[in-house]
Design a protein around this nucleic acid. Sequence first.
DNA 1: CGATTCTTTGAAAACAGTCAATCTGTGTGG
DNA 2: CCACACAGATTGACTGTTTTCAAAGAATCG
Lengths: 191, 191
Amino acid sequence: MFSIYETYLKTKGNFTADEIELIRSLAITKTLHQNEHFLKEGEQMKFYAFICKGCLRNYIVDENGDQHVLKFAMENWWAGDRDSLISGIPSVTYTDALEECVLIMFAKDTFDKLCQQIPALAVMIDTLFHRSYVSSFKKIHEAVILSNQQKYDNFNQKYPALIDRIPFHMIASYIGITTEMLNQLHNDQCK
Amino acid sequence: MFSIYETYLKTKGNFTADEIELIRSLAITKTLHQNEHFLKEGEQMKFYAFICKGCLRNYIVDENGDQHVLKFAMENWWAGDRDSLISGIPSVTYTDALEECVLIMFAKDTFDKLCQQIPALAVMIDTLFHRSYVSSFKKIHEAVILSNQQKYDNFNQKYPALIDRIPFHMIASYIGITTEMLNQLHNDQCK
DNA sequence: CGATTCTTTGAAAACAGTCAATCTGTGTGG
DNA sequence: CCACACAGATTGACTGTTTTCAAAGAATCG
């Protein structure tokens, strides 16, 4: 499974064979079965976790016990609650596996040291963080101005085929509409 | 005006007198009059810009020529398009002054070098970036699940008195509702 | 004071959410 | 292997909210 991560690294920067080997030596592989929790509210996230296989969902539970999906993460993404990881504070979100998952993980301390030793790795993470800031800004704007129809179209464009992989009510929660509405939009499209 | 920035710095980290002096020596003060453009679409943002006084708005113009307000920035915030600044790409947004503004600016290269020399400054910026990532996540979630009424309440809580300082239609654009709707919510509250 | 921009109002239409009932598929225990 | 329970999907009627449109009133700026 490390080979998937190695491929990912090679698309993100120039790493020497030695560096790859060093990274490999410190990687921890973890598997999750379907519906298994990866991180719970109140727990601190202590590992960088890269997804080699599978799909996870990140969500919060409000005071009424209702769940709100904040994001989905799948192959070649990073999983979990970044705020908890970086700030060292307890997570306010839950993350769990929607499918069988295989993760490549690194203890936070280990990974931070690696970043100091391997400049390309530090650049990769900085870029990643910057990118996700930019994309989250874009997502705010979309949430604000788009109609339900447009949100639906957008979702399908951004996550092709994900709608066939994840229960409707979770996608509805993610894009901020009701399950009934999502269903109707989906029907309209298939006509 | 630098004293305002100095006060800001002191709340964000421990800076020595020498460091403050070094920062001061490289600062550029700029004033903007009301409605003056600070940054246009297509231009590259080349300065870190801290707001000592005044209020700016950051927005995009869509294919129909309609403006969409992405954010407001005022005293003790940073102005402009961060993506352009960090990535060195042309800005996709406009930023202009809603009032007379005074900015403390630093050329990007200059500031990046300062960060290397002054660890507290680098930490400050990292924290700032991380924070705004986290808060953007919160804002997405709010845009997705809150009713117009709640968005209005939220805005007033987060930006007290800003509603008396900025034209209604810009605030409406920012929170993603029509001017008429905002007006009605505002009336209801005053009853 | 004239032009422009911003705010306010109300009616009609479009839109989205709620609710309740039904349908479907999956997995479990007998 | 069947019957049942359960979670998720689907449907339609109803309700409430939000937008659109049009028009008029205030405020601001040159």
